[in-house]
Simulated assay, not measured.
Amino acid sequence: MRTDDFWTLIDQARTGADGDVEAIAARATELLAARDVADIVGYARHQRRVLAASYLVDLWGAAYLINGGCSDDWFDYFRGWLIAQGRSVFARAVAEPDSLAELPVVRQAAVTGEDFASQEMLGVATRAYRKATATELPPDPDAVPYPPEIGEFWDFDDEGSARRQLPRLAALFLDPPAE
């Protein structure tokens, strides 16, 4: 599956979902299950590449600020949510994690405390393959490994570090709104 095909499928799944990530995941599963098995395997492989490319310390820091904490599993789920936001949001967040502060849903989360994560988005290929073949998705012998270095970690709990690394997100999530 080519990059454009992967993101086109995500965009198709987003249509009519009104930002509901679980609905996007369900729709993506249905759309993918209707395709050739090779496309399902290709989707899984491409998703792995997308996740590997987004395995970055500053993006993890952004997830930590936005969600009020972020374990390694939760960072995967955060990136599942990020995939559901579409190609342009995903690419911009990978290039500049602090840009997430511009998203209306993220700005609202600074007030509501909503968390952003989707394990369901990460399971789209597995569920689609099972639906299409009644068998489990085989392991990818050519799986793209995560980079050995995520980048230099900084203390996500240190306000000064957060303000230096992600100033816009820090302003949203560390400074209480004026009443």
Score class of each variant (00 low, 15 high):
Val111Ile: 14
Tyr55Lys: 07
Glu149Leu: 10
Asp58Gln: 14
Asp5Ile: 09
Gln108Thr: 14
Asp157Thr: 14
Ser118His: 04
Leu169Phe: 05
Pro97Gly: 07
Glu152Arg: 13
Gln47Phe: 02
Ala34Glu: 15
Ala44Glu: 09
Val111Phe: 10
Tyr146Ser: 11
Pro167Lys: 08
Asp5Glu: 14
Ala25Met: 08
Val105His: 02
Tyr64Ile: 00
Tyr146Gln: 09
Leu103Asp: 08
Ser118Gly: 09
Gly160Glu: 14
Glu120Gln: 13
Ile83His: 01
Arg14Asp: 06
Pro148Val: 11
Ile83Gly: 00
Glu152Leu: 12
Phe78Gln: 01
Thr3Leu: 05
Thr126Gly: 09
Ala52His: 07
Leu166Pro: 04
Leu59Tyr: 01
Gln12Arg: 13
Ser118Glu: 03
Arg87Thr: 07
Ala13Asp: 05
Val57Asn: 07
Arg79Met: 06
Pro141Cys: 08
Phe173Trp: 05
Ala178Thr: 14
Met1Ala: 13
Ala109Val: 06
Asp140Lys: 06
Pro145Met: 06
Val57Ser: 10
Ala44Phe: 01
Phe75Lys: 01
Ala26His: 08
Val41Arg: 14
Thr135Glu: 14
Leu122Met: 12
Asp73Pro: 03
Phe153Val: 07
Arg127Pro: 00
Thr8Tyr: 01
Gln47Ala: 07
Thr29Ile: 05
Ala128Glu: 03
Ala13Lys: 03
Pro138Ala: 11
Leu172Phe: 08
Val106Asp: 01
Arg27Ser: 15
Ile24Phe: 02
Gln85Phe: 00
Gly61Met: 03
Ala143Asp: 09
Phe173Glu: 02
Leu169Arg: 04
Gly86Arg: 04
Glu136Arg: 09
Phe156Pro: 02
Gln108Arg: 15
Thr3Lys: 08
Ala128Leu: 05
Asp155Phe: 05
Pro148Trp: 04
Val106Asn: 02
Pro139Ala: 13
Tyr77Ser: 03
Asp18Ala: 15
Gly19Ile: 11
Glu159Trp: 02
Trp154Gly: 10
Tyr146Gly: 08
His46Glu: 13
